[in-house]
Write a protein that binds this DNA or RNA. Structure first.
Lengths: 349, 349
DNA sequence: TACGAGGCTGACAACGTTGTCCAGGCTCTA
DNA sequence: TAGAGCCTGGACAACGTTGTCAGCCTCGTA
């Protein structure tokens, strides 16, 4: 029975049960505490025979090093935090996975949490992660003021923002070329003869939404097409309202012949609306969606590389931790137009 | 400047930078260490005036409690681990999110990792989580021997397996009714007149795959239909081989008129094959897929409730931690047949 | 006025690990 | 054979926090 058994009496709430400690292992192996530490960490300076005895004791007691104590002593936790909007969103799965792979390559674990698009919850999560002393943070911001992070960053928490820039602080950020992608997508529709093109996107206070809107506006302007207010629907994101917005654009006095959708969720809903619609309407969506190629017609999209966003951000994070990184920077990854049919439909008035 | 500044000189590797500690806060506020602890933890027995002074010092120094030290002292980490196959798989997103929500409701953080369907990596991850002293583990097993977890469970790490049962140990497990779901799906095809029904699934050493295969076999048997070997393709999972397997079934001497697919990835590939195929072939797939309703025809599926799996497992985990839970149990959640068209096509010979 | 009760506060040890430093035993050489 | 140098092992403090406990101060009451 390990020496530490008594503990439970004093802390009935503990869940460690009676985990053996290095002290217990040392006692059983008949060696000093530090010798056990050396064996566990593969440090040199231990005879093969002593090592064998220690290993045997470890085995017998089922000892496992307590990393909390280790962290306390060493100062590094070898873990990083990832705060995103919603793990269940198919866009974030690959991103999260990419961050994890990079972390793994650096021997770090990933702690993550969903902000549910709520600024307070984002802050709560981030600060909880800081209290855990994660070495670094990858944050997909929900809020637009991140000054609360200043003391943390000053204290050495590496931080990289992804998908949207940080608010009111100077930090690394990795984003997609939202403006350029939207510009490409809308120009593509224009090149196929469309002039009355609708836009359905999120609230412009969200950075990505604002940039995509700007891409739409500029592409129209570049082509010399004045935009009617009724062609734009902003801040609309729940399916029911998207559906209504789409129907209005399609049936107004100046009905659109094409729609550009600002994110994957909107795209899916609009596809449903168009499926019920008799007149063919062209569609280009921001973000790729699964099975887009199997629909009739295939859905033309402006695709972001979610995995690349995550990978780039995580790599930058670890470069901050290495100390090989200098000033905060903004990195923009290109988007890719994937033509599948829906964006190449001619205007049908 | 906080007193702990010196630290950096001694441990140049540390990333804490110079984080103020409670000691620093105490010094600045002119109070004792324990008083700071009381304020930080909202314990009673502190005058309003003293509390104000402490809060002020906390603010000024940017202090944040070090949870590693707290954990070491208290014994509970208020974090749980989730080990799954691949975060990027759309099936696991909602599951992971559901686990997170339950954890959040219990004030715990979620640490997760992908095993990449590799048994060694699963073990490595699980043990790393145990070294962090997570309070509990939710595991979607990749390997089939979990005896390595015995000392951990004995030491008090709550453990729940999801989606597939644990190997060689007695532990809580939450699974879908894979057998029943597959039986329903295949019976549905039979009810629509099919007799030559193909099955494409994963290796039967994977529990879910074996159960689904059993559902297929039993449904056929129940209908008195002998199964030709050429109708079954097992252990096939990469797109190229699935494609080949499907084509062979469709063109053999006894061509199938319907296919039952064993998981979402297989289903997607088979949909692609059928899209190029002239003769209409019925299809029912295990697992729901996004946009399945928008394809022509809509894809009939046997849907699992991934979120419910995660939620149920996590709740059980916390009941283990509460101590309100008794013996390990196996919980089976029902599946649901969603008819959308592809499963209702009549046989076309 | 003296005394006890109760409210605040702080000193101290402990959580399990690792870095530092020293002791003792060995080998090797002059 | 003595001294230098190396190798192995252990004692001890420290990481930042919390539980225990004892001391002090104030207030009410006899």
């Amino acid at each position: 029975m390990p020496e530490t058994t008594r503990r439970t009496d004093r802390f009935p709430g503990t869940r460690y049960g009676n985990r053996p400690t290095m002290k217990d292992v040392a006692a059983r192996a008949g060696v000093g505490l530090k010798t056990v530490s050396r064996v566990v960490n593969g440090e040199p300076g231990v005879t093969a025979e002593t090592e064998r005895r220690v290993q045997e004791a470890i085995e017998a007691l089922g000892f496992r090093r307590n990393d909390s104590a280790r962290v306390l002593r060493k100062g590094r936790t070898a873990s990083i935090g990832l705060v995103l909007e919603d793990l269940a969103d198919p866009f974030y799965g690959p991103l999260s996975r990419a961050v994890e792979e990079v972390a793994r390559a650096h021997g770090a674990l990933l702690i993550n949490g969903s902000s549910a698009e709520d600024a307070d919850r984002e802050q709560e999560l981030v600060l909880a992660l800081c209290a855990r002393r994660v070495d670094g943070l990858v944050v997909i911001p929900a809020g637009d003021d991140h000054r609360y992070l200043e003391p943390e960053i000053k204290a050495g928490v590496a931080t990289v923002f992804v998908d949207r820039p940080a608010g009111h602080i100077d930090a690394d950020v990795v984003v997609s070329d939202n403006y350029g992608g939207a510009h490409d997508g809308v120009s593509h529709l224009i090149a196929h003869g469309h002039r009355r093109i609708g836009f359905i996107g999120d609230m412009p206070r969200i950075h990505t939404a604002a940039e995509r809107l700007r891409g739409y506006r500029t592409a129209m302007e570049d082509a010399g097409i004045p935009v009617a207010d009724s062609w734009m629907s902003l801040g609309v994101t729940d399916p029911e309202r998207v559906r209504r917005a789409a129907r209005e654009m399609l049936s107004g006095p100046e009905p659109v012949t094409a729609i550009f959708t600002g994110n994957n969720r909107v795209t899916v809903t609009v596809i449903r609306v168009l499926a019920e619609h008799t007149r063919p309407v062209a569609l280009v969506g921001f973000d790729d969606i699964e099975l887009a190629d199997l629909l009739q017609p295939g859905v033309t999209v402006v695709a972001q590389d979610a995995a690349a966003l995550g990978r780039t951000a995580a790599e930058r994070l670890f470069r901050q931790l290495d100390g090989t990184l200098l000033a905060p920077e903004r990195i923009e990854l290109p988007t890719r137009l994937i033509t599948r049919g829906s964006g190449e439909l001619p205007p049908a008035d």
